[in-house]
């Protein structure tokens, strides 16, 4: 065997180690779409909150309208968030499937299974945590908590996919903590974290790896 073959062996070893532990076909385009859905969702939420503010008496901090309005507002906001999350997951699934096909990568591999479970555990924990907060009438920290748990889920999952995902996770956590510092601006940080960051990250990934 010549030295060139030995070099080839080394690169082959590296390639197989990477491919067997990392699922790299995550689509950048799906990040752009998820960000767009989040922006549209935030706009709808803003309109809903605006309507509610109209009925809000700041001197007594009590909603003039009856309790059902508050409860239906709560339900509509949760509904918007769930629809945004659902559409993002569906888009990510189909675009990733398409990209995997192009890369000749199977979508259901040990690496992708690890990726999903390591993402899902912090994410579902966060989802239940926020749901329980809202049930107890604590709304203020829902948006910061969503950003923080999402960031933790990304960092946890980044071991099994593109390492840049880790960086996105760190930024989401920072935004979540800042949302607590600047308490009461949940929607703004939601727009930054789930909207703008996703679009920037998705676009960077797309232009870096998929444009050809």
């Amino acid at each position: 065997m010549s030295e060139k073959d030995y070099l080839k062996d080394i690169s082959e070893i590296k390639d197989i180690m990477n491919r067997s532990t990392r699922f790299i076909s995550l689509s950048g385009l799906s990040g752009i779409l998820a960000g767009t859905y989040a922006l549209i969702g935030a706009y709808i939420a803003y309109m809903l909150l605006g309507d509610a503010n109209y009925n809000f008496d700041y001197s007594t901090e009590i909603l003039k309208t009856n309790y059902t309005t508050l409860s239906s507002l709560k339900n509509s906001l949760i509904g918007v968030a769930l629809i945004v999350a659902f559409l993002s997951v569906i888009s990510a699934y189909f675009l990733t499937k398409q990209k995997a096909k192009k890369n000749n990568e199977n979508i259901w591999t040990p690496a992708s299974r690890q990726l999903i479970s390591s993402f899902a555990i912090p994410m579902i924990t966060g989802g239940v945590f926020i749901f329980l907060l809202i049930q107890k009438g604590i709304y203020g920290i829902a948006a910061p908590a969503a950003l923080i748990f999402y960031g933790l889920a990304l960092i946890n999952a980044s071991k099994y996919t593109l390492s840049q995902v880790r960086f996105l996770g760190v930024l989401e956590i920072l935004l979540g903590l800042l949302a607590l510092v600047f308490f009461g601006n949940g929607l703004l940080f939601w727009i930054l974290g789930f909207g703008i960051l996703h679009i920037i990250y998705g676009a960077l990934m797309y232009f870096k790896m998929e444009r050809n």
Binding site: E12, I13, I16, M17, R19, S20, T21, N106, T109, P110
Partner: peptide, 23 residues
């Protein structure tokens, strides 16, 4: 054989079909 060993260095266990696809 080099491929099988490389994959098993970074995964605790792998099944036959996964190895087949990978290699």
């Amino acid at each position: 054989r080099l491929g099988i060993m490389s994959a098993l260095m970074v995964n605790d266990t792998l099944d036959f079909n996964t190895l087949k696809e990978l290699l």
